[in-house]
Structure formats: C-alpha cells, structure tokens
Amino acid sequence: MPDQFLFAIEVILNGLMAGVLYALVALGFVLIYKASGIFNYAQGVMALFAALTLVGIMEGQVPFSHLINATFGTDVHHFGWHVPALLAIFLTMLVMIALAWCVQRFVFRFLVGQEPIILFMATIGLAYFLEGVGDLMWGSDIKTLDVGLPQGGSFWIEEMTVGLGGDGFYGFFIDKLDIIATVIAVLLVAGLVAFAQYTKQGRAMRAVADDHQAALSVGVSLNFIWILVWSLAGFVALVAGIMWGAKSGVQFSLSLIALKALPVLMLGGFTSIPGAIVGGLIIGVGEKLFEFLIGAPFLGGATENWFAYMLALLFLVFRPQGLFGEKIIERV
C-alpha cells in the first residue's frame, strides 16, 4: 500500500482516539444539560478540580497548607503518606459527590425556575470559585499524575503493521494511553446507559429530564436527582481529568479542555450521550484529517481548532439541535 495512504489511516486512527478524549469532556456537559437544562460552564474546571484532588490525596498533601501556614505560622505540607491510586480515585469521587451536594444545596436550590441564562451565569461563577478553591487547597504548581496508566506508542502495533508500507513507513503509531482512554470511555458510556435504563435512580433521572414537573408529581425528588446528576458529571470530570492530566501534568490550563468539548456538543447535540461520542469521533477524525490533507500542506498548519468550530457552525446552520439532539419545537 502507498505510504501516503497508510499515513492517512494512521491519522484517522489517532483522530478517533483524540475524539474519544474530547467526548469524555463533552459527556459531563451532556449529563447536566439533559437532566437540568443547565449548560455547565464549570465542567472543565470540575475536571481540573477532580484531578488536583486526586493528586493531592495520592501524595498525602495537606489541603489549604499555604493558608494554614500563613495563618498559624506552621510549616505543614504533607501528611507523610502515599495513598494507592484506586483508593485515591474512590476518595476523590467522595469529594466530587460532596461538591455536587454543595452545588445543589448552596447554589441551584435557590435558582429553581430561573431563566437558563441565569443558571448559565451561576455556573460561570462556580467555575471561578472552584478554580480559586482548587488553587488554595492544592497550590498552583504543575503536578505529575501517575495512576499507572501506560504511555507512549505501542511497539506491538508498530511491529505488526510496519510491513504494510515501504521504507518510509514505520508502522502505525497508536498511543497506549489513548487505547486505555477508548476502553474506559466505552465502559463509561455503557455504564451510564445501563444506569439510566435499568436502575430506579436512572429512570427517575430520565423522568426529570423529560418533564421535571411531572416527575415531581409522582414523588421523584428533584434535589436528589440534581445531586446525582452533578455527581455523575463529577465522576466523568474525574475520568477526563485523569486522561488529560496524564498527558500534560495536572495544571490550571486543564480547565481549558472544555474548549475542545464545545464543537463536539454542537455537533452531537447537547442532550445525547451517544451524540457526545459520535460528535467527538467526527470532530477528532475531521480535524486531524483536514490538518493532514489540507491544513499542513497548504494553509501553514494549526487548522484543527478552526476546522472543529467551522464544522460545528455548519451543523448549527443546517441542524441546530445537532446530530442526536432533541428537535427544538416552540409552540406560540
């Protein structure tokens, strides 16, 4: 096979993997939007906060140590222990559930029935609040996240495919971390769908998403469902934080991964879990292939963000609800 064709396949494969990572971020947005109609601007910061908390717990870091030391003149930074990754992930999840409770108890409980723009503004405030708290709790230095995930190109795939091309082809490059992310994303989506379909809480969640007043009338607790949904979004944020944090270290620009989710949401629809996945894959493959075929050779490169948002814009023009979103019908 010609090398150029094989390179294109390699780009598509890597685009699919990148798309999965985008979809992981988009999933958190979808969960909250679907259940409560809130576009959660803070989703990226939640991924950052979850990753910061995970590293802090794993390394036995004393939360708010700078504040404690400055106030009391102490010099405490670490508890002196290291927590195993799995236990730390579990403890971080408890923190995210507590955060979900706080968000519902202290913010959105008072905003029930408000216009969507008010709820959106509240999530902007929440994003800045969480970023500040994350900084105070864990410090703003860049942290290495090592939960034992493998990284780097897979030798096995390279060796198996190197014979497909000529001397200029070195086998397909697939990052092992991307493979793990794909498997986790599949399990996550399957788990979320199963939860929504087969559990009492999941059905209640769907009922609230369909019509929260009707759900209230049959005894579904709106408070509980919102806490549940924010907890699930917190869990998805934790997974996204681990995957992205493993690539770049855990740092405050991690919150900017939300920028990658926006075109995915526009394309897949704000209310569809499969839409987030399919949208992520289309954006991932589309932007990488465009960069490979047109962007780098003819336009000077760095066209990926541009392409993703242009594609999303096209979808907004011709199918505003996205590929899988619910059609917006306003009766007057």
Binding site: F173, S253, K288, E304
Partner: peptide
Amino acid sequence: QEQKSQWL
C-alpha cells in the same frame, strides 16, 4: 493540549 498532528 492537543499536538498529535504535529508529532505524527
């Protein structure tokens, strides 16, 4: 945060 294209 995403540099896969460049490094490929």
